[in-house]
């Protein structure tokens, strides 16, 4: 990895990263799945859910990016999975067990049908505040 030698270079690298990973909401990017993998999530079984999601997507040959992320704050509803379908708002699912994980893929992603366990987003991001 080459060292970043100036602030300008950092800006360019950011632009490049965003371009390669695909603009968050652009309709032609991949479906993104995030699993809350902080200590709280892992303790509630997030590791296993992650594995189920990876294996199921491979089995069904669904082109998605699955990654870990930190704590979403909804401890009462761990493990948490966030799914972002291109062009739509991300949806957060709580109380995800193996069945619900399969449901997320089979029903929500493949059939775009609503399923149980959606956790309403209750916060504003820094970009929503002016």
């Amino acid at each position: 990895m080459t060292k970043i030698k100036s602030f300008d270079e950092l800006r360019k690298i950011k632009a490049k990263i965003i371009k390669t990973s695909g603009e968050a909401n652009s309709p032609n990017s991949l479906i993104k799945i995030k699993v809350g993998m902080a200590t709280c999530g892992i303790a509630s079984g997030a590791g296993e859910i992650m594995q189920v999601l990876v294996e199921e997507c491979e089995r069904q040959a669904i082109d998605v990016t699955i990654k870990q992320t930190g704590c979403l704050g909804y401890c009462y509803a761990e493990p948490m999975v966030e799914v972002q379908i291109p062009g739509a708002e991300p949806v957060v699912f709580g109380y995800v067990d193996k069945n619900r994980a399969l449901e997320i893929i089979g029903k929500f992603i493949l059939q775009r049908k609503p399923i149980e366990g959606v956790i309403p987003v209750s916060f504003k991001t820094i970009n929503e505040l002016n």
Binding site: K34, G36, Q68, G70, C71, G73, S122, K124, T125, E128
Partner: peptide, 18 residues
Amino acid sequence: VLKKQVRIALRNCGVIDP
């Protein structure tokens, strides 16, 4: 849902892969 929360310190928690 009323968005009572504002995430500044936690802005990237649950967003990025740490």
